[in-house]
Design a protein around this nucleic acid. Structure first.
Length: 637
RNA sequence: GGACCCGUGGUGUAGCGGCCAAACAUGCCAGCCUGUCACGCUGGAGAUCGCCGGUUCGAAUCCGGUCGGGUCCGCCA
């Protein structure tokens, strides 16, 4: 139950015609006072001539007693009261009879003895229990009647937590001299990786606005404008498939600072995160301050992930050395190493007695993520190692692997041999999954960390160009600036052998408990360098000017060095509320297919709306055909 | 684009080829009850098993499709 805040007390003083106090405000000290409460009937306990009503609002719950002899009219109304009816009750605050206090309620020492009771609104029987917060309910029902789900304690408290989070964020930024600035929602489409949501223009038929995937360019322009320190709680839109941690519209803490080095931004953001965390969830320990900082290669090497969960160990171990001189006898390992691949493993503590089917599960998991197989070595209680590949490797090598991995009796060593990226990805995912399965992570701990020094680009095989690993505006680590060139010398002709592939970005991500919380970078603020970077990313000069002309031009008018970051508010709030699904911290989320089950969005517009926008619908059949034809043209021009 | 899971009175589940026009809990309705707080007691109403089609003598139960919800891969930072 949430304690009333200072604001709640201020509200009490407002004394609306419907209530003198909230349902969470009254205490033993108020005994004898007249009071009026308004709220929803949480529960009714009818003892005939005596009726108890629990009256609920978002501040709490107060027991109302209606006695037929004291207040016959009120009693008659109370007899007909039903759960979720909205009542206004006037009466006297009284201490409960000795022995009938309810220690589970903040207001449990008192009750309101009703003298007058008015029904402000009747309620249908709700489609699910509002007064039993633990009762499981199908999520589509909860979404359809979201306003009822929001009356329930868990979701209500999560929204309150989220509000506290956003408030703490605002406080911290204002104190640090940041200016909160809103940026437009109707902007221009910019290829930032994700698909844009499009809004057709009525005033200029045939043209469209795009909804921002983030205010990236706008905030950089604010730096050019000299705003120096900007932040915004910004709504962002991405038209991609949904997940538990991805909604088509979501909220970011977006910030940008001028005249900064990488460390300036990271230090501020880290301090802000620590302060906000301690203010919003003071009872939850932060694993390590300052946050551990890993370079991208180190994170992949040790955790197989660029968003490692640091609440448990289980680091990846290189086993090549322990295998000894090649050939080891196991051909998969030998060939992998000969081809420049890696043989690495992780130790699952206590899983040495895993059943065949459990092993099969893990193997299937590994295969699903691209591994050709999964080698397991079980360490028995007596320390002996057992593995299906034992007959190839021999006892000695098996024992060496176990020793190198640090596996103890009762543990299970899992080994993947493959290309470096696959080994990291598969073991990283296995590590995360096993960490959860084996409950290795303390759920209460907040383990923030930084991962930085990402590669600037990744080679895009399909389109023959470099793709920005994160953000197309990210700056290059100063000493790597000479690498931003192609092998051919012509930046407009990228190839996989370009030195640019080795360039590192001034890019940093924050992770929390295995989730990516956000990322940012120090940007390129020089026009020539930005043009070169865009060229490597496959943008012809004209296309570049068409897409980013405004920004490039702005950089000719004195752009300060600047950098920033964006953090996912939904994810942050979810993790602070012990949730693994951001729908649980959003007031009105959408389903996996992007529907709003409450409003019925998206919906078919009327013909008139189409006409006004100069649009005509193809019909579902033709639209799908057009879509198929449109496929495979991933050209940037 | 793909894989998997779920869909039975208001809600949550059971039933998984005939014994089921379907069971249990809770909710709902009615009656009784002056100290409850998931109040209690008594009685009652309420689902043709998401939808369509098929297999079968017979389908909630098997098969195919479809719709809705979820998890995941791809996609997405």
């Amino acid at each position: 139950m949430t304690e009333p805040t200072i604001l709640a007390h201020a509200l009490d003083d407002l004394a609306t015609p419907y209530r003198s106090h909230t349902c969470g405000a009254l205490r033993a000290d108020d005994a004898g006072a007249a009071a009026r409460l308004a709220g929803w009937v949480h529960r009714r306990r009818d003892h005939g001539h005596l009726i108890f009503l629990d009256l609920r609002d978002r501040y709490g719950l107060t027991q109302v007693v209606v006695d037929a002899r004291e207040a016959p009219e009120a009693h008659a109304v109370a007899t007909g009261a039903r759960p979720e009816d909205v009542l206004s009750v006037a009466g006297t605050v009284a201490r409960r009879l000795a022995g009938t206090e309810n220690a589970r309620l903040a207001t449990g020492e008192i009750e309101l003895r009703a003298s007058e009771l008015t029904v402000l609104a009747r309620a249908e029987t709700p489609p699910f229990y509002i007064n039993a917060p633990d009762a499981p309910v199908d999520e589509s029902l909860r979404l359809r009647y979201r306003y009822l789900d929001l009356r329930r304690e868990p979701l209500r408290d999560r929204l309150l937590l989220r509000a506290a989070l956003v408030r703490a964020i605002r406080d911290a930024h204002h104190r640090a001299g940041f200016v909160e600035i809103e940026t437009p929602i109707l902007i221009k489409s910019t290829p930032e990786g994700a698909r844009d949501f499009i809004v057709p223009s009525r005033l200029q038929p045939g043209t469209v606005y795009a909804l921002p995937q983030s205010p990236q360019q706008l905030k950089q322009l604010l730096m050019v404008a000299g705003m120096d320190r900007y932040f915004q709680i910004a709504r962002c839109f991405r038209d991609e498939d949904l997940r538990g941690d991805r909604q088509p519209e979501f909220t970011q803490l977006d910030l940008e600072m001028s005249f900064v080095a990488e460390a300036t931004v990271m230090d501020f953001v880290e301090a802000m995160i620590v302060e906000v965390s301690r203010s919003v969830v003071p009872e939850r320990p932060i694993l390590e301050v300052p946050f551990p900082r890993f370079t991208y290669p180190e994170a992949l090497e040790r955790f197989g992930s660029d968003k490692p969960d640091l609440r448990f160990g289980m680091e990846l171990v290189d086993l090549a050395a322990a295998l000894g001189p090649v050939p080891s006898g196991f051909r998969v390992f030998d060939e992998t190493l000969a081809a420049g691949g890696r043989v690495k493993g992780i130790v699952a503590p206590g899983l040495g007695d895993a059943s065949r089917s459990r092993i099969d599960e893990l193997t299937a998991f590994a295969r699903r993520h691209g591994a050709r197989g999964l080698v397991h070595v079980a360490v028995a209680a007596d320390g002996s190692a057992h593995s299906p590949v034992g007959k190839f490797l021999g006892e000695e090598r098996l024992a060496a692997l176990v020793a190198a991995a640090g596996a103890a009796p009762g543990d299970l060593l899992l080994v993947v041999a493959d290309r470096s990226e696959i080994v990291a990805d598969v073991l990283g995912r296995l590590r995360q999954q096993l960490g959860l399965d084996l409950e290795l992570a303390d759920p209460n701990v907040l383990a923030y960390c930084w991962v930085h020094r990402f590669p600037m680009y990744q080679w895009d095989r399909d389109n023959g160009r470099w793709d920005a690993t994160h953000n197309p505006f990210s700056g290059v680590v100063p000493e790597d600036e000479p690498l931003l060139v192609t092998a051919s010398g012509d930046p407009y002709r990228p190839s996989i052998d370009d030195p640019a592939g080795r360039a590192r970005a001034m890019q940093y991500d924050v992770a929390l408990n295995g989730w990516e919380l956000g990322g940012g970078s120090v940007r390129i603020h020089r026009r020539d360098l930005l043009e070169r970077s865009f060229a490597l990313q496959g943008y012809a000069l004209e296309k570049m000017h068409e897409l980013f002309g405004g920004m490039l031009e702005a950089f000719d008018f004195g752009a300060p060095p600047h950098g920033g970051i964006a953090l996912g508010i939904d994810r942050w709030a979810a993790l602070l509320a012990f949730q693994t699904n951001i729908r649980e911290v959003m007031a009105f989320p959408k389903t996996q297919s992007g529907s709003d089950l409450m409003l019925g969005a998206p919906s078919v517009p009327d013909a008139g709306q189409y006409a006004e926008l100069g649009l005509r619908h193809l019909g579902v059949e033709q639209a799908l055909r057009a879509l198929r034809e449109e496929r495979a043209t991933g050209d940037r021009g």
